[in-house]
Amino acid sequence: MCDTCGCGDANLVSVDVHQSLLSANDAQAAALRLRFTGDGVTVVNVMRSPGSGKTALLEATARAFAGRHRLAAVSGDLATSHDADRLARAGVPSAAITTGTTCHLDAAMVERALQGEIGAAARACEYFFIENVGNLVCPAIYDLGQHANVVALSVTEGVDKPLKYPVMFRHADLVVLTKVDLLPHLPEVSVAAIRDALARVMPEPELIEVSATKGAGLDAWLGWLEQRRAAALASRCEGFGS
């Protein structure tokens, strides 16, 4: 008999699956995270619109952390390795993940990149940045094995981006509001309005205002990174103790 409706059709079979379509990606990401955590590497997935100032933020991070912490990065882009080249010039071992027509990174792409030259630096660094493809839609749902999701949002993008892209901001652990030195030229942009929009889509909204070129807010950003690193390292100790 049919298991579903009892219709008596011997040829009908209902198979319950109850599995996320992302389960294969999530399993691969969990394995990556376990490996990174074991190596003492803190992984930060940076998502953003194109032109948000995220590469400038990472360049400024590299300058500020120079001599204190080792960094490495992979940069996802549809074409070119410009972002990875910029980070390499800033002293950060970097590799490009050129995705072609694919609009996001997934755990398999990160795994493949780590099998290349960047793999050794990625295991030996303290902070590994994954610069995701510039897109506020598709990258949000893919776990890459990171310890934290950061969304870089520039003041020139207006105040309602969080409301327009709720899925992206729901997944964020931190929003870095970039290019705040431009605020005096943007009378229609209010940081309070951005904070209000965030509070409606992000359960525990956290926002740091930064100007990568002028240095404002960088200390808060670096402090946040160090806090996340301490938490990731603590989770490693708990893991070893259990």
């Binding site: 040829n11 699956v17 109850h18 599995q19 996320s20 509070a199 992000m202």
Partner: peptide, 27 residues
């Protein structure tokens, strides 16, 4: 605003996933 009057933060209780629930097969 995703902040409760009691001071607690919100969590998404439904509608955050994409799931394969079940298949109907003809054998």
């Amino acid at each position: 605003v995703l902040q409760c009057a009691c001071g607690g933060a919100a969590r998404l209780s439904r509608g955050g996933d994409v799931f394969l629930d079940r298949l109907e097969l003809e054998v």
